[in-house]
């Protein structure tokens, strides 16, 4: 440190300045790393989640694979559109068959729509013929907030290198009408197809459509 510069300040002032500068540097470092939770092109946040069979999953467990995160609330009419029609189940079957890890996430707080026990969710998966790799129960909303999930459904895709390559809507028809599924561009299938073919994702970040995620107040 420049002794001439520092000598004009008393010891107390020097300490204050050091603390202030350190705090400032820390704040800048913090803000640079946490400006956005899950922005396409950046490293996807690592997480730890527990599924409906009590098994713990970490994103880092799946390095080397494509991972799809699907935010879910079966009571939401936008989600129901994709489940009642069998569309979501079809996507889960098709993509897990191609080695994609599909994790459904439920971030509804207890007492709010979508909150469900592990047993009930397992029963729903059987009855609806759903085929995710696992369903992560996130009643505290920690995983939802880590990814800043706003709606159900909201879809995230992480590539084998751990980069977020898609964040947004399931498709381009923001309605609750199952009749709109057929003619829609499915952003998830498009992104996975493009990425697996080594091409850049053409629609990497769209505004997701759905009901709000029911975080605790």
């Amino acid at each position: 440190m420049d002794t001439i510069f520092w000598s004009q300040f008393g010891v107390r002032m020097q300490r204050k300045l050091i603390i202030c500068l350190a705090a400032g540097a820390f704040a800048v470092a913090l803000s640079l790393s946490t400006v956005w939770a899950a922005r396409v092109g950046e490293r996807a946040p690592d997480f730890t989640g527990t599924d409906t069979n009590g098994k713990v999953h970490k994103l880092s467990d799946y390095a080397g694979k494509y991972v799809v995160l699907e935010w879910h609330n079966r009571g939401c009419p936008f989600t129901a559109k994709h489940y009642d029609s069998g569309n979501m189940q079809r996507l889960q079957h098709d993509w897990t068959a191609r080695g994609v890890i599909w994790l459904t996430v439920i971030s509804s707080a207890p007492g709010k729509q979508g909150y469900i026990t592990a047993a009930d969710e397992n029963a729903f998966l059987k009855q609806s013929n759903a085929a995710p790799t696992a369903v992560l129960l996130d009643p505290t909303g920690a995983l939802g907030r880590l990814y800043d999930a706003k709606t159900t459904p909201q879809m995230f895709i992480i590539d084998p290198q751990g980069t977020l390559i898609y964040n947004g809507a399931i498709d381009d028809r923001a309605t609750t009408d199952a009749a709109d599924i057929n003619g829609a561009r499915n952003y998830v299938s498009l992104a996975l197809g493009e990425a697996m073919a080594g091409k850049p994702v053409s629609n990497p970040s769209t505004r997701p459509y759905g009901c709000s995620v029911k975080y605790p107040e």
Binding site: G75, C76, P77, F78, K112, Q113, T176, C211, S212
Partner: peptide, 12 residues
């Protein structure tokens, strides 16, 4: 008129 009306839950 097609709409979605919400409170804690949404109804189309």
């Amino acid at each position: 008129v097609k709409y979605i009306v919400c409170r804690e839950i949404c109804v189309p």
